[in-house]
Amino acid sequence: MKRLLLPLLLALSTPALHAQKAPAEADAVKQTVTAFFDGMRRGDSTAVRRTLAPAAVFHGFGGKPSQPPTLEIESINGFLKAVGTPHPEIWDERVQFERVLIDANLASVWAPYEFYLGSKFSHCGYDSFQLVKLAEGWKIAHVIDTRRKEKCR
């Protein structure tokens, strides 16, 4: 009986250990995404760059009204330069973490957002982040988003 008890206890405790680790990892992933947007709000391109994996890729998916949507590759360096260049209004992207999925060193974040220039609404959509866990922690490897001015929720 004792021989069966130890393996049984180990088997039952493994999901509990995984369950405890999962929220901590999800929180770490969210912290990376939050740091990205906090840096953007401050106009701090160095802080934004620290959240990115080497060779990160940004895509935008949207278009003009009454035209088919287009997929655009966005320059990381151009984005960082724009973030760090003084602008009259704060770039305030307000995200909600709808879903965070993690498998080993890969995470996916699905997040509806609203973007404001200062206090003025600009556009909305969904952000999809792909993050990788490197030696220094979770880093953003890919971002793709949708953009529209109406029907946000």
Rank of each mutant, 00 (worst) to 15 (best):
I102T: 04
P65V: 09
T51L: 02
A55L: 13
P54L: 04
M1L: 13
K30W: 14
Q96Y: 10
R41T: 01
E72W: 05
G43I: 01
A111Y: 00
L8C: 11
A47N: 06
S13A: 13
E25S: 14
A47E: 12
F36Y: 15
W91N: 08
V57P: 00
A26G: 01
C152D: 07
P68D: 09
S119Q: 14
L134H: 07
S122H: 09
Q67D: 02
G62P: 01
G118W: 07
G84A: 01
Q130W: 05
V109N: 00
Y113A: 03
E74V: 10
F36G: 06
P69D: 11
G39V: 10
Y116N: 13
L71Q: 05
G78Q: 11
L71R: 11
Y113D: 03
D92K: 14
A35C: 05
S128K: 06
E98Y: 06
L12D: 03
L17A: 11
T146M: 03
R42I: 09
P54K: 06
H87M: 10
A82R: 13
E136Y: 05
Q20T: 09
A24S: 12
D27E: 14
T34P: 03
I90T: 15
L131I: 01
M1N: 09
R49L: 05
K2H: 06
D27I: 13
T32W: 02
L101T: 12
E72L: 12
G137V: 00
D103I: 05
F58P: 00
Q31V: 07
D38P: 08
I102E: 10
L9H: 03
